[in-house]
Design a protein around this nucleic acid. Structure first.
Length: 277
DNA sequence: TTCCAGGGATATA
DNA sequence: TATATCCATGGA
């Protein structure tokens, strides 16, 4: 994609495949805020400021290389959208969310975030994560970093309940302990089925949460996370009826192949924003 | 008051 | 392997 670096800022020239609101509000990330058109995103211990200037987007970051990778800037989404447009329903969804990109988020916080996301709603997820970082994250003045593994493992279930995690508190305690005890987070070059199997050994990580982690942290493109919105999406494709999310995900990933993750993201955003019940 | 939210664990057959 | 039930919380 067309971007350049100037004075420690990233200038994104091609807004046909880069939209700040669409990237952040497509349900893949929770630690962001907006005020008067200025967006703040925090990932790990890095903060990024995003805004528009004329017909360009400007990214300021404490770590430029991190930001380039995080916002997936070295990927051209034009051919992806062109291939997807041949599928039913997709042209509408792509037109609606043409600036969506799939972020490359740090694995640990993606795992924690999506364990919290289970049977939960986005405003609450954001609140729980805000309190988590406020309590355990390193203080950088303007913002708090995401807590380190050491900080996460230093707390018990009572703490996670206090910040509002509810019954997911025990899952979090168990999972961060597993990671500290040697669960290998480096799944970038592990094939999707094996990586998925490993993630699902973590407490609080089932099929859907595993797929979110695979897509939003490891950029595995051959997954289709099935949530309540995606069940409606499945219905509208008039595919074989089934009650099983696993069956739906299998049918959809068979249909979309290595475009599954992208298809899911455009469709999720379109359905949720338009509240298609 | 009940229902729902980017579901998963567990028990049961 | 497939289905039923329980789980904290807060907003609608």
């Amino acid at each position: 994609m067309d971007y350049s670096i100037l004075n420690n800022q990233i200038i994104v020239n091609d807004l046909s495949q880069f939209d700040i609101k669409q990237m952040l509000e497509s349900g893949q990330v929770f630690r962001f805020s907006e005020e008067d058109g200025n967006y703040k995103i925090i990932a790990e211990n890095v903060i990024c400021h995003l805004k528009y200037e004329y017909d360009r987007a400007i990214i300021s970051s404490s770590d430029i290389d991190f930001a380039i990778k995080y916002f997936d800037l070295d990927r051209d989404y034009a051919p992806i959208k062109q291939r997807l447009a041949a599928y039913p329903l997709m042209q509408t969804a792509i037109d609606y969310g043409k600036g969506i990109r799939i972020l490359n988020q740090p694995p640990l916080e993606t795992i924690v975030s999506f364990i919290i996301s289970a049977n939960n709603n986005i405003p609450r997820i954001k609140g729980i994560l805000t309190r988590l970082c406020e309590c355990l994250g390193e203080d950088f003045g303007e913002y708090r970093a995401f807590p380190t593994l050491e900080a996460l493992t230093s707390e018990d279930a009572a703490f996670y309940r206090r910040i509002g995690a509810g019954y997911r508190a025990e899952y979090l305690v168990d999972t961060v302990r597993s990671i500290a005890d040697g669960f290998d987070l480096n799944l970038y070059s592990v094939a999707t089925p094996e990586a998925r199997k490993r993630l699902m050994t973590l407490k609080g990580v089932g099929g859907k949460v595993a797929d979110c982690i695979l897509l939003f942290a490891y950029h595995k493109e051959d997954v289709f996370p099935m949530d309540t919105w995606c069940k409606r999406i499945y219905r509208d494709f008039s595919l074989p009826a089934t009650k099983s999310c696993a069956n739906m995900a299998h049918t959809l990933t068979t249909m979309f192949g290595d475009l599954s993750g992208y298809a899911q993201q455009y469709l999720f955003y379109y359905y949720r924003q338009n509240n298609i019940i």
